[in-house]
Computed example of a mutant assay.
Amino acid sequence: MRKTIATLTAVLFIGSATTVFAQASETQKNECLLASKNCTNQVDDIYKRMQRLDREIKKGKRVYSPEELKQLQQKLTETQELLRDMERPGK
Protein backbone atom coordinates (compact mmCIF):
# COMPACT_ATOMS: atom_id res chain seq x y z
CA MET A 1 0.00 0.00 0.00
CA ARG A 2 2.78 2.44 0.90
CA LYS A 3 4.61 1.66 -2.34
CA THR A 4 1.47 2.41 -4.33
CA ILE A 5 0.95 5.74 -2.59
CA ALA A 6 4.62 6.65 -3.02
CA THR A 7 4.48 5.74 -6.72
CA LEU A 8 1.32 7.78 -7.30
CA THR A 9 2.81 10.75 -5.48
CA ALA A 10 5.97 10.55 -7.59
CA VAL A 11 3.91 10.37 -10.79
CA LEU A 12 1.92 13.44 -9.77
CA PHE A 13 5.08 15.44 -9.03
CA ILE A 14 6.69 14.42 -12.31
CA GLY A 15 3.52 15.22 -14.24
CA SER A 16 3.20 18.67 -12.73
CA ALA A 17 6.89 19.41 -13.31
CA THR A 18 6.67 18.54 -17.01
CA THR A 19 3.59 20.76 -17.39
CA VAL A 20 5.43 23.71 -15.88
CA PHE A 21 8.46 23.03 -18.08
CA ALA A 22 6.28 22.89 -21.21
CA GLN A 23 4.67 26.23 -20.35
CA ALA A 24 8.05 27.82 -19.67
CA SER A 25 9.50 26.63 -22.97
CA GLU A 26 6.52 28.02 -24.92
CA THR A 27 6.92 31.49 -23.43
CA GLN A 28 10.68 31.57 -23.79
CA LYS A 29 12.38 33.84 -26.22
CA ASN A 30 13.27 32.31 -29.53
CA GLU A 31 17.04 32.55 -29.16
CA CYS A 32 17.59 31.14 -32.63
CA LEU A 33 15.77 34.03 -34.31
CA LEU A 34 17.02 36.63 -31.89
CA ALA A 35 20.70 35.82 -31.58
CA SER A 36 21.34 32.72 -33.72
CA LYS A 37 21.67 30.55 -30.61
CA ASN A 38 20.13 27.11 -30.05
CA CYS A 39 19.47 26.62 -33.77
CA THR A 40 19.96 22.88 -33.93
CA ASN A 41 18.07 21.35 -36.85
CA GLN A 42 16.26 24.59 -37.74
CA VAL A 43 16.40 25.22 -41.45
CA ASP A 44 13.50 27.37 -42.64
CA ASP A 45 12.51 28.57 -46.02
CA ILE A 46 12.05 32.32 -46.30
CA TYR A 47 8.28 32.18 -45.77
CA LYS A 48 8.56 30.13 -42.57
CA ARG A 49 11.25 32.49 -41.28
CA MET A 50 8.96 35.47 -41.85
CA GLN A 51 6.08 33.68 -40.09
CA ARG A 52 8.28 32.76 -37.13
CA LEU A 53 9.63 36.31 -36.83
CA ASP A 54 6.10 37.73 -36.98
CA ARG A 55 4.89 35.26 -34.35
CA GLU A 56 7.74 36.21 -32.01
CA ILE A 57 7.11 39.94 -32.53
CA LYS A 58 3.44 39.42 -31.62
CA LYS A 59 4.50 38.03 -28.22
CA GLY A 60 5.51 41.59 -27.46
CA LYS A 61 6.82 42.99 -24.20
CA ARG A 62 5.64 40.04 -22.12
CA VAL A 63 8.57 38.04 -23.54
CA TYR A 64 10.96 40.49 -25.22
CA SER A 65 12.56 43.77 -24.24
CA PRO A 66 11.99 46.81 -26.51
CA GLU A 67 15.51 46.43 -27.92
CA GLU A 68 14.92 42.77 -28.74
CA LEU A 69 11.60 43.60 -30.39
CA LYS A 70 13.36 46.21 -32.51
CA GLN A 71 15.97 43.64 -33.48
CA LEU A 72 13.31 41.10 -34.46
CA GLN A 73 11.45 43.72 -36.49
CA GLN A 74 14.69 44.62 -38.27
CA LYS A 75 15.31 40.97 -39.11
CA LEU A 76 11.77 40.66 -40.45
CA THR A 77 12.26 43.75 -42.63
CA GLU A 78 15.58 42.38 -43.94
CA THR A 79 13.96 39.03 -44.75
CA GLN A 80 11.09 40.74 -46.59
CA GLU A 81 13.58 42.81 -48.61
CA LEU A 82 15.52 39.66 -49.45
CA LEU A 83 12.33 38.02 -50.72
CA ARG A 84 11.50 41.07 -52.85
CA ASP A 85 15.02 41.02 -54.32
CA MET A 86 14.71 37.33 -55.13
CA GLU A 87 11.34 37.83 -56.82
CA ARG A 88 12.56 40.65 -59.08
CA PRO A 89 12.88 39.59 -62.70
CA GLY A 90 16.29 39.92 -64.28
CA LYS A 91 18.35 38.89 -61.28
Rank of each mutant, 00 (worst) to 15 (best):
Q73W: 02
S16G: 10
S16F: 11
P89M: 00
K37H: 12
K70S: 11
G15L: 05
N41C: 07
V43A: 09
K70T: 12
V11F: 13
K91H: 14
I14H: 07
P89T: 00
G15K: 04
L53W: 01
G15S: 06
T9F: 13
E81L: 03
K29E: 15
L72T: 04
Q80N: 09
E78W: 04
A6R: 09
T40D: 12
I46P: 00
A35E: 14
C39T: 13
D44L: 07
T27D: 13
A24T: 15
D85K: 11
G15E: 06
E87A: 12
K3T: 06
K70C: 08
T27H: 15
L76K: 11
G60S: 04
V63N: 11
G90V: 10
L82S: 02
Q71L: 14
P89C: 00
R88V: 01
E87Q: 15
V43G: 08
C32G: 07
L76N: 05
Q28M: 15
Q51D: 10
S25L: 07
T40F: 12
M50T: 11
V63R: 02
V43Y: 04
A35W: 15
D44E: 03
R52Y: 03
R62W: 06
P66L: 05
I46D: 03
Y64D: 01
R88E: 14
T19Q: 12
D54H: 03
D54R: 06
K58H: 04
A10N: 10
A24K: 15
K29S: 15
D45A: 09
T18L: 06
T18K: 03
T7G: 03
K58G: 01
Y64K: 02
E87L: 15
C32V: 12
A24D: 12
V43W: 02
E81A: 06
S25M: 09
L83H: 04
S65A: 11
C39V: 04
L76Q: 09
D85M: 09
F21N: 10
G15V: 09
Q71S: 14
I57W: 01
A10K: 14
E68R: 02
T4G: 04
V11N: 09
L12T: 11
L8S: 04
N30E: 12
V20I: 14
C32P: 07
S36Y: 09
G90P: 13
G60D: 01
A35K: 15
P89L: 08
S16V: 13
R62K: 12
L83F: 06
E56W: 00
R88D: 13
V43N: 08
K61A: 07
K37A: 14
G15N: 05
E78Q: 08
Q42D: 03
V43L: 09
T19R: 09
M50V: 08
Q23G: 13
D45W: 05
E26Y: 05
L8H: 01
Q51T: 11
K48H: 08
F13D: 00
L82Y: 00
K29Y: 02
R84M: 10
A35V: 13
V11W: 08
K58V: 02
I5T: 05
E68N: 14
Q73V: 02
A22S: 06
L33W: 06
D85S: 06
L69S: 02
S36P: 00
M86W: 10
N30D: 15
P89R: 15
R55Q: 10
L82C: 00
M50L: 11
A10G: 15
F21Q: 12
C39E: 00
V43M: 04
F21T: 11
R88N: 13
Q71N: 10
